[in-house]
Design a protein around this nucleic acid. Structure first.
Length: 265
DNA sequence: CCCGTGCCCTGGCGGC
DNA sequence: TGCCGCCAGGGCACGG
């Protein structure tokens, strides 16, 4: 499940493969993903550049921006053979290569926007700044206004962008704060630690080329990334700091892993 | 407005 | 062995 680091890796892959290329054709096997009128607009557009915001990939075209969200299992790959893979939903055809979008659960989304409406309309209009650029005072103000648990706040893309379920758990642990502790109960030093942890953890993951529990691949050189997670997915395994078993609860419908001993409320 | 819940979708797994 | 039900999860619509 791609979060900010994985999304940046995917964007780098796409930049390397298709920047400055012209879309010769688009084939859509799952029309809910890309409507026919959108498909037609994509043809003959040149890929000017590829950027990211939070978990969104922004493919800048001649006249539009194509906004791609991978959700849990979306991936792009360079076609090596004619035969389609199971769950290929879209093909982007270029002069001498083909990029395919594959998504087991069909949760991924595409939005085509006019250039000047890219950041002023949904979905990107709702996306806050990333941990790297958000101001600590702005962030702390938002925390103090929220009665939601810290875990939910970290997942809320309107407050801070790019963090998903895995890194949210890791960030709570880094800050030694219980994921159920409410935003309005947090101190400024705690907020600073959360932001510092967010930056460090995401940066480390970007360096590694991303992290995921499933077989995430932007190209097939990259399959599984080595994981060194402190809490996420480690239910009933000993905490790497205090050796007490990691606990698991649901917060806002999301499975949440934490250490009862290290993370106090 | 703010927060929690259900939905979208498929594969994998536990239970019988 | 096979089938059923449940779970996983990001973002959004909806309801309290």
């Amino acid at each position: 499940m791609p979060e900010l680091p994985e999304v940046r890796v995917v964007a780098a892959f796409l930049r390397q493969e298709i920047k400055n290329q012209i879309i010769k054709d688009v084939i859509v096997y799952y029309p809910k993903m890309i409507a026919e009128e959108v498909r037609l607009k994509l043809i003959n557009q040149k890929i000017k550049d590829i950027k990211t915001l939070g978990k969104y990939i922004i493919i800048e075209l001649t006249d539009y921006n194509l906004i791609s969200h991978l959700r849990m299992e979306g991936k792009y790959y360079l076609a090596k053979q004619k035969e389609l893979s199971k769950h290929d939903h879209v093909i982007f055809r270029f002069k001498n290569k083909e990029i395919r979008y594959n998504d087991t659960r069909k949760f991924g989304t595409f939005d085509l926007k006019k250039k000047n409406q890219t950041y002023t309309t949904k979905p990107l209009s709702l996306v806050a700044q990333e941990p790297f650029t958000i101001n600590i005072d702005t962030f702390y103000e938002r925390l103090l206004k929220s009665g939601a648990p810290l875990k939910s706040i970290l997942l809320n893309q309107k407050i801070i962008a790019g963090i998903g379920n895995i890194y949210a758990d890791e960030i709570c642990f880094y800050a030694r704060i219980h994921p159920l502790k409410k935003g309005k109960e947090l101190t400024k030093p705690e907020a600073e630690k959360i932001l510092k942890g967010s930056k460090e953890i995401l940066t480390a993951a970007i360096k590694k080329g991303g992290t995921t529990l499933h077989s995430f691949s932007s190209n097939d050189k990259v399959g599984w990334f080595s994981l060194d997670l402190m809490v996420h997915g480690r239910y009933e395994k000993p905490c790497k700091i205090c050796k007490q078993n990691i606990n698991k609860i649901k917060i806002g419908g999301r499975t949440t892993y934490f250490c009862d001993n290290c993370q106090k409320r």
